[in-house]
Structure formats: structure tokens, C-alpha cells
Amino acid sequence: MKLLIQAVFIAALLLMAVPSAHGQDAEYSRKGADTCIACHGDAEIMTLFHTKHGAPSNSQGPFGDGQLQCEACHGPGGAHAGRVRRGQERPSVIRFVADSATPVEEQNGMCLACHQNDVGFSWHTGAHPGDEIGCADCHDLHASADAVRQTSTQPDVCFTCHQMQRSETRKAFSHPIFEGKMDCMGCHNMHGDNAATQLARLNVNDTCQQCHAEKRGPYLWEHAPVSEDCGLCHAPHGSNHPGMLTKRAPLLCQSCHSQSGHPSIPQDAGGLAGGSPSQFLLGQSCTNCHSQVHGSNHPSGSRLMR
């Protein structure tokens, strides 16, 4: 049954593409945007004309010559703008709001009609459409400045759903996201990518090394987890510990290093400044000496001390 409805709907849409004998499609409004603005001339809506969607110079845009203006996105508005009998509900156009009667996929279809090539096909295989995220959940098309396209305001848009990541960015040590100096898109491709967690590049390290290329090496003396996955030691959204480490040294290092001697010695609170200050605990802990934890290119650097 649903297939039939869908087929009828598609057929109807395709029929819209065919001009009537009179060259006039009755489904659309008579005067285009003028019809719409007569009722919907609120300031928040009219800011569309501050954007490229509202610019006639954008020939491919809704207000380009011969384009469908408001109805390019909101669909045919003839019935919506027409007369309705008393007590009859006014037919709706496609609305891009949370309580819209228009299904999300249909909303997105309107955007993808023009932006499929911009968004890419991995959008369809990514996580967002699977969770019924609409384009308009992130993009504000009528705003002078779309918040999700600006570094300082983008994270707040993402955090609407990704609340745990927001919490993490408020930790004492994090990327400068809270300060508005870095956005989510620096590391993630929201429109979907084939990388895990929609990373900007195809794996974690390639993504981190866009900005931290000094860690890339290859070094003469490599530290195995570094070349494999930065996330083995770092929490990229934020941490209670300096360097966004997942836990405090020396325990972090002792998770993997058990050599005889100081790597295996437990460091207790007696080694703090008020007791017998320990070089294994205070200051930079293990990296007081093994400072080249990301690798060393020094011929004598096998212990990551040079």
C-alpha cells in the first residue's frame, strides 16, 4: 500500500514537471513570492534576501531568472494560497521545522534536488539520515548568517544533539571549541563520509595530523600506539588531564610498560611535593625524561629520551 502511495506521489511530482496545455501549472501560486510575502513578510523570513538563496544573481538559486522562488523549496503553493472554505484546514506547503507535517525525507529531498552534488552520496550511507536528521535541523536557510557555517557558532548547532560531546568540550583541557575558535568540521564531515565517525579524513591519525603534522613521522624510533591511533592515549573532545590524556601519568604509561625497574614501581602519594618529591610523579612525570613520546629521530633516541 505504501509503495502504491509512494508511486502515486512520485508520479504526481513527475507530472508537475510536464507543462499543462495552457503552459500554466495550477499547483503553483499565481504570483510566486509576491503571493507568499503578502502573508509571510515577517522580518525573520525576509532575511532570506540577505542570503544567496535570495539573490537573483544566483542563476541556479530559487530567485534566479525563471526559478520557482519560495516554491522552489516549499513546493507548489497554489492550494495553500488559494481560498479555503470555512472550517477547512488550509493545505500546507513543505515546512522545514520540527513539527512539520512534511516527512524529513521529503524535506531533505527538496534540498538534495539542487545540492546532491554538494553533499555527496555518502550522506545517504552516513549516520545522520538514518536518524532522520533533516537538513533544516542544522541549517537555517532564512538567517542572514547560517550558524552551522560559522566556526564560532557551529558547535552549538551540533551540540543540540551531541550533548555528551558538549560536556567534554567543557573540561579543563580541550580543543578551543568552547572559546569559539574551532568547529566540529575541523575533524568531522557532517554530510557523511566513509570514514568512521564521519572523520574529515579516512582515519583518526590522518585527521589529527592535519594540524599536528609534527607527530606524523615516520620516526626512526616509533612509539607503536602513536602510529596506530592517537585516541589510544588522547581524548580528543576533552579531558580532566593536561594534553587531553585519557588518564594521568604515570598510570597511563604503566598501563603498557612493565619493564623491570622504575616503570614497574608504584608511585604513591608519598612522592608528592610535601613528601619525598618523586621525579616519576611530579612535573611531567614519565616525560620528564622520556619526552619524545610521539617518536624520536635521534640515533640515540630508542628510549624516547633524545
Partner: peptide, 21 residues
């Protein structure tokens, strides 16, 4: 697929510019 099909259909609609504007 509704998205894709709707998108395709509307692209046809827009490109064809069949509406008398």
C-alpha cells in the same frame, strides 16, 4: 529513497522550468 526520488523529480521540475513564471 523517497529523498532521492523526490529530489530527482523536483530537479526535473526545476530544470524543466515548466511553470509559467
Amino acid at each position: 529513497f523517497s529523498s532521492l526520488i523526490v529530489g530527482a523529480a523536483l530537479a526535473v521540475t526545476a530544470q524543466a522550468q515548466t511553470v509559467d513564471t
